[in-house]
Write a protein that binds this DNA or RNA. Structure first.
Length: 795
DNA sequence: GCAATCCATGTACCG
DNA sequence: ACCGGTACATGGATTGCG
């Protein structure tokens, strides 16, 4: 038997009649690509008896039933907890995953069975969980060399006996082989479609410095695909990364390959990419990662394009090189000159994808490791599922049964408390907030599905906490499931933060741990939302309702305490309070709050100047270091044109610094005059809005939907979640919807400048300046006939 | 009869 | 496919005035 270091990258399984076969794909301590095979793991599920008195009868029946069926390995009684209550259930273990469905169906409707549990945990995840294996960690594996042949593309195959966490190397990553790729299509009309479009070009960039292009000019389409496949098999990447590949490139490429009778057998088992969980595409033995899923987490980037993401992450494009963002790119192949642009664009895209991925890798590996979700799934999985997999791991460690997902009706409940702001300019404002308010409320009041008491008749008031307003009681002892999970998450985070203090900020270990800390924070902060999510396995509405109710009580009491110290309160939202900065009062206030409420509150930041309008959730502030925070206003909303955002940002800056509206008014008038003279770049006039549902599900036709419809008519695919960019043109119609046009089909001369003056620039500026009683009359009026006469004659 | 106001719809933000 | 609270644009329906 050998021992070796192993870093799990991917897990797959196959089933045969007598066993399931797990393949753990990964990298060895000697940087070899290896696969560890385990055929000894048996799938199982639990049958919950209707009541504990029917347990024996059910057990005998199932045992009898199983004795005549070789597919069942064992039927046994086992002690578990279900929502915190001890329960004896029957564990049915099968010899292969092939028979799970059959056996579940066989006994699901048995009169003595109340429900079947954990048959909905996939065999591969079951394996990782039961063996306590987390992806992206080093393990010490006890293995035996596999003797025999197997059609897999790895350096070595082993049979796995056991493995345990290896703590010797600190937090490190293996040397991964990464392949970034970009595909360009030729589509004469609209978006590419598998039947009528062609693969014009595939570009590849690897982290070993290889650049490669397969171009329709040099070979036919079939050859492009086969060259691409061969390249992948030869280079043998651990990670394949692209941009928008899960929903676009891979499905299109696979359909096109089928039409051309070509295969894309690029996995480490020589199989084709497969649609898998959470809409991601899986490639056996490798991690296929879509940077679009990563970009979802970068909420500051409103329009998720490669150049914007690159810019945000501080990745410089080579001098003079640019990425094309126009949808007309699909027709470029037809034009000889544009072909050159297309080729350059594609090569650059592949390089940029690789660079973005290198920056994202520490976070992705840590999120994968913290949640336990495989590297290729973790970004594709919605936040609720990431939280849930963390919970599932904890449940299994605690011997808790995993509930099933259920269909439930939606009833809203009351959420957080928001204080009306004092409008106007304020100087020297301290922003105080509770650290991790909701997680700490859940910990303090032991709010959890298993501590919730539907009835408290037999208990004395000392034995439970009672949520205010909503009246939901929760047992004080023992610690509930959420409390255990959240304490673990919070202590994990503070431990990591402690470690970070002793590390060089420039070191790789610091980078990894810092990203680990961020991953833990994301999970902890999503736990409250998870409790109120209808899709949650551990959904118990009173938990969410009670947590929000405690939150309201706490922030209201905090406001009272602030008043008692005669602090001037400017604003507050959920877990924060904005007060005039009087340090002595504030330190006493903090002391009292922490003593009375038992939660930590701290000064988060100081604004030397800040401004509020009448509206909640919108403010701007100047920080001592000169940076400016803008919260909620149009300037940070992706559905206003860039010009309006830019104007508002500048207005905010001028107002905060001059504490007067005058320079801002002058500035805005300058912009309006530039706009009239057509001096504003066209791109700054595009308005982007998201298509949030299938087009035929809209009850009215807002501008962006009208534009989406016309794009669809032109052959463009518009999917839910896509952003549509339009500009407003002059026209006879009063309706905006009829004057909004796809941005790439409009000439500057057709732009309705008045719309941009009166519906974009002026409202964005006035939102801020109205606190000084500035009105529309303080700005230049709209264009007159004279203006347009002038424009026609100016060069 | 017409302007002012109300209201439903839709999007994107805050914490 | 984490929650509720909130602001605001748009455009058609309703109201209020006389």
């Amino acid at each position: 038997m050998d021992k070796l270091l192993f870093w799990p990258l991917d897990i797959t399984y196959t089933s045969s009649e007598d066993c399931g076969e797990i393949k753990l794909w990964g990298i060895s301590g000697e940087n070899k690509r290896i696969v560890l095979v385990d055929r000894t793991f048996k799938p199982y599920f639990y049958a919950v008896p209707k009541n504990q008195s029917s347990l024996e009868a059910l057990f005998r029946e199932l045992e009898k039933l199983s004795r005549i069926d070789k597919k069942v390995l064992s039927v046994e009684k086992t002690e578990k907890y279900y929502f915190g209550k001890p329960i004896t259930v029957i564990k049915i273990t099968l010899i292969s995953p092939l028979y799970l469905n059959e056996w579940e169906n066989k006994i699901r409707r048995h009169p003595l069975v109340s429900e079947i549990l954990e048959s909905d945990i996939r065999y591969s995840m079951r394996y990782l969980i039961d063996k306590d294996i987390y992806p992206c960690n080093w393990y010490l594996a006890n293995v035996e060399e596999f003797k025999g042949s197997s059609n897999v593309s790895v350096d070595q195959i082993f049979m796995l006996n056991s493995m345990s966490l290896y703590n010797g190397g600190g937090v490190t990553l293996p040397k991964l082989k990464i392949l970034a790729f970009d595909v360009q299509w030729y589509s004469p009309k609209g978006s590419p479609k598998p039947e009528t479009s062609m693969v014009a070009l595939i570009s590849i960039a690897t982290n070993t410095g290889i650049m490669k292009q397969f171009f329709l000019e040099d070979m036919d389409e079939k050859e492009i695909l086969s060259s691409f496949s061969s390249f992948i098999l030869n280079f043998d990447p651990d990670i394949i990364v692209g941009f928008n590949i899960n929903k676009f490139t891979w499905p299109l490429l696979l359909s096109r390959a089928k039409i051309l009778d070509e295969n894309l057998n690029i996995s480490r088992e020589y199989s084709s990419p497969q649609t898998s969980l959470y809409g991601h595409i899986s490639i056996a033995g490798r991690a296929n990662i879509d940077l679009m899923d990563y970009a979802e987490s970068l909420y500051e980037i409103k329009i998720k394009t490669l150049p914007r993401i690159a810019e945000y992450l501080g990745i410089d494009l080579p001098e003079g090189e640019k990425l094309i963002t126009s949808p007309l790119i699909y027709s470029y192949w037809k034009n000889k000159e544009k072909r050159v642009l297309l080729s350059k664009h594609s090569a650059l895209s592949a390089k940029i994808i690789l660079e973005i991925f290198k920056k994202a890798l520490p976070f992705i590996t840590q999120l994968s490791n913290v949640t336990g979700l495989p590297l290729d799934q973790v970004l594709a999985a919605p936040v609720g599922f990431r939280v849930e997999w963390f919970l599932i791991r904890q449940a299994v460690k605690d011997n808790e049964l995993i509930p099933r997902r259920a269909e439930r009706p939606y009833y809203p409940y009351k959420g957080a408390f928001v204080l009306k702001p004092r409008s106007g300019l304020h100087e020297n404002i301290a922003v105080l907030d509770f650290s991790s308010m909701y997680p700490n409320i859940m910990i303090k009041y032991n709010i959890s599905p298993d501590t919730y008491l539907p009835s408290v008749e037999e208990l004395s008031p000392e034995e439970f906490w009672m949520a205010p307003e909503v009246g939901h009681p929760f047992r004080k002892h023992p610690p509930g499931f959420y409390k255990r999970v959240l304490e673990k998450l919070l202590s994990l985070r503070s431990e990591i933060k402690k470690q970070l203090k002793n590390l060089q900020p420039s070191s790789l270990e610091y980078l990894l741990l810092d990203n680990r800390q961020k991953a833990v924070k994301i999970i902890a902060n999503a736990c409250y939302g998870y409790t109120g999510w209808l899709g949650a396995r551990w959904y118990v509405k009173p938990c969410a309702e009670a947590t929000a109710a405690f939150g309201r009580k706490i922030i209201k009491e905090t406001i009272s305490i602030a008043k008692a110290y005669s602090l001037k309160i400017v604003y507050g939202d959920t877990d924060s309070i904005f007060v005039v900065n009087e340090p002595e009062k504030i330190s006493k206030f903090i002391e009292t709050v922490e003593k009375k409420l038992g939660l930590n509150i701290k000064i988060d930041k100081i604004y030397t100047v800040c401004l509020f309008t009448e509206a909640a959730k919108r403010y701007a502030g100047l920080l001592p270091d000169g940076r400016i925070d803008v919260i909620g206003f149009e300037a940070v909303r992706g559905d206003w044109c860039e010009l309006a955002q830019e104007v508002q940002l500048k207005v905010i800056e001028l107002v905060l610094k001059a504490k007067s509206p005058l320079p801002a008014i002058k500035y805005v008038n300058g912009i309006i005059s530039n706009l009239k003279r057509q001096k504003i770049p066209f791109e700054k006039l595009i308005i982007w809005k998201t298509i949030s549902r299938p087009i035929d599900k809209y009850e009215v036709v807002p501008p962006h939907v009208a534009v989406a419809k016309s794009l669809i008519d032109m052959g463009y695919a518009i999917n839910v979640g896509d952003k549509v960019g339009y500009v407003v043109t002059k026209g006879d119609s009063k309706k905006l919807s009829e004057r909004a046009k796809p941005y790439f089909m409009v000439n500057y001369s057709d732009i309705d400048i008045d719309y941009y003056i009166s519906k974009q620039v002026i409202p964005a500026a006035l939102r801020i300046l109205s606190i000084f009683n500035v009105t529309e009359r303080n700005f230049l009026r709209k264009t007159s006939t004279l203006d347009s006469w002038f424009i026609k004659r100016s060069p």
